[in-house]
Design a protein around this nucleic acid. Structure first.
Lengths: 336, 336
DNA sequence: CTTACTTTCGAAAGCGCTTTCGTTACTTGT
DNA sequence: ACAAGTAACGAAAGCGCTTTCGAAAGTAAG
């Protein structure tokens, strides 16, 4: 491995001077700058990030942790879109992303410990559930953090405007003539699920629509199976809803499957609207009417929030709410 | 930050001894081991990975690079599944994953340079296209690499048995009575696309089925739109195929959309089989008959291959081919 | 009581880099 | 001519850790 010593020896300057041209210090003459840069080229020198980090205390690395109930990690269609956008944004500034495990030399440690061990400059937390111990530990630590899709008064956060999303969904359904509107909720331990449920109640109330208790059913952890199960229970009701608003696209897809299995059709017999607008929402049959979360924007905003903290060298609290929009496709229609 | 010096001072031993208990050296008495470990606990000491890496030349870090034609990075439904499995596998051994950008202190560098800068122990390359300059540079370097979904005689690789996949698809279609079978191919610059196309020809030949030139059409880069476009051209043929085998699930979904738009139905009018078995294949309408790639296995095998190289400290060439299986769902049926 | 091991520990060098603070030599103004 | 400033460079310490090698002390054997 070629080091600054090698190129110092070759050019006859000191390592100090070499380091200075590498870091654009001004007290180096143009001539020696040229000479050193030439040697750097010729010897194919590359700095050593670890040595650099050791002295500067800056790793140009951002830790990422996925805590989501499904346990599918980077396969999660909403979260991976957000992270991809986040990555593109921080990449511009020169940061790399570190996906860490939880053992250090074969000892199970917390994420926080692992990030401290790795010396990351900040961490982005993708988290759907409240009250995760690991997450709590992270956001209470002075290390800069931003958490996506959750709220907290101890960390910067960014999430979608879930209330507005629910309002858009309900209003849309009502404008089609629906009054018997049910809700398949996300798990109550999830921030987004809870917000959307509350938003649903609120929107229904604003329109003076009644919500029988049986009309709000838990869809578990935003899974397709959970959606199907929830829908089945709705279909067994004597007074069935004519429309259902699901707190996630996967839930909606499960619901549609359950509806079809009963020999009913969407949207003729029942309208359904989802949430997220995942890639596939437009390709299923019928194409899903849904609330789009702007994953690009969410990723960008969280990157901004995190980088700002890293630059100030202190973790501060800010909250960005990202607007949502209603995407009307084929899974909703006028009430029969 | 608490260092080994702090805990040395506290316990009265030397840093050497502290380091030794941290690394399980045998020449330390049980008593001092206890004492030092207690101090480590009490002072909440954590090693510094950068300092450690600097002296040991081992970073416990694996670089990952996504080179895929769609430019969607970690949103790619097949690749992200493979990477997730890969991550879980290397995590057991204590490795973290580094997603890098391509600039070092604001200078555009190659991936190879960036990985050298970061001192990764190995790199996993997810790559669909042949002849990418960056990839070539990486696999020619002595750094351990494994590339997924491609072949190379300079790097370890793991990919699915694409020939067998094509054979399974064609045989299945033929067993349903189809003889006019078309193929929507992946882009010719992709390894998987080419292999599946060749496998298609081979399988057709084995069954003595003819393949008119117009029956093999390019679906571009495995996109939904590409699939739709390709299907349209097939539907315009005077002698239409009764079945189509698409080289990817997205292509198949595009094809189904195009078929539906023409007022035709799957599988009544046309059968279609896809490739990959992505998460959503089972949830679209009709549920997609497809060739399943075992993403878990692919991830595991590539992890094994890479770790072995890292352990031997030399990059060697091996090739693992992972079996595929036919998943029969609702998008294929007997010929009309 | 030697001799020869075996245990247990520590001094010190080194990994590759940054940064502070001097030093030297050279300008400039008067 | 001299003071005062500026430009260009380098010595050395330090970041936190590992590892080699030698020293000291304890133990067993003769």
């Amino acid at each position: 491995m070629v080091t600054i010593y090698d190129i110092a020896k070759k050019t006859g300057f000191s390592v100090t001077t070499v380091s200075k041209v590498l870091n654009n210090y001004s007290d180096v003459s143009e001539k020696t700058k040229k000479a050193i840069k030439a040697a750097v080229e010729e010897m194919d020198y590359l700095p050593n990030s670890h040595a650099r980090t050791l002295t500067t205390k800056k790793s140009w690395t951002i830790g990422v942790v996925f805590i989501e109930s499904l346990g599918i990690g980077v396969k999660h269609p909403f979260f991976n879109a957000v992270i991809e956008s986040f990555r593109q944004e921080v990449e511009i500034e020169g940061y790399d992303l570190l996906f860490v495990s939880r053992n250090i030399s074969n000892q199970k440690k917390s994420y926080l410990d692992h990030f401290r061990y790795r010396g990351v400059d900040g961490v982005v937390i993708v988290c759907s559930t409240y009250d995760d111990e690991q997450v709590k530990e992270l956001i209470e630590d002075p290390i800069p953090t931003v958490v996506i899709d959750m709220s907290s008064d101890q960390s910067s956060v960014v999430y979608s405007d879930n209330y507005e999303g629910s309002r858009l969904a309900v209003d849309h359904l009502q404008s089609l003539g629906h009054t018997r509107i049910a809700h398949i909720a996300g798990h109550e331990s999830t921030f987004a699920g809870e917000q959307r449920k509350k938003g649903f109640y609120q929107a229904m109330k604003a329109l003076n629509l009644e919500v029988p208790d049986e009309y709000v059913v838990n869809g578990d952890y935003f899974s397709i199976e959970g959606g199907a199960r929830a829908m089945k229970s709705l279909l067994e009701l004597e007074k069935r809803p004519t429309a259902v608003y699901a707190a996630g696209d996967s839930l909606a897809m499960g619901a549609i499957n359950a509806i079809n299995e009963q020999g009913l059709r969407v949207p003729e017999d029942l309208s359904v609207v989802g949430y997220d607008d995942i890639e596939l929402a437009q390709y299923i049959h019928p194409a899903l009417t849904t609330i789009r979360q702007q994953t690009d924007l969410i990723g960008q905003e969280s990157a901004k929030l995190l980088l700002k903290q890293i630059d100030c060298k202190e973790s501060y609290v800010a909250c960005t709410q990202v607007p949502v929009e209603l995407i009307i496709r084929k899974s909703t229609g006028p009430v029969a």
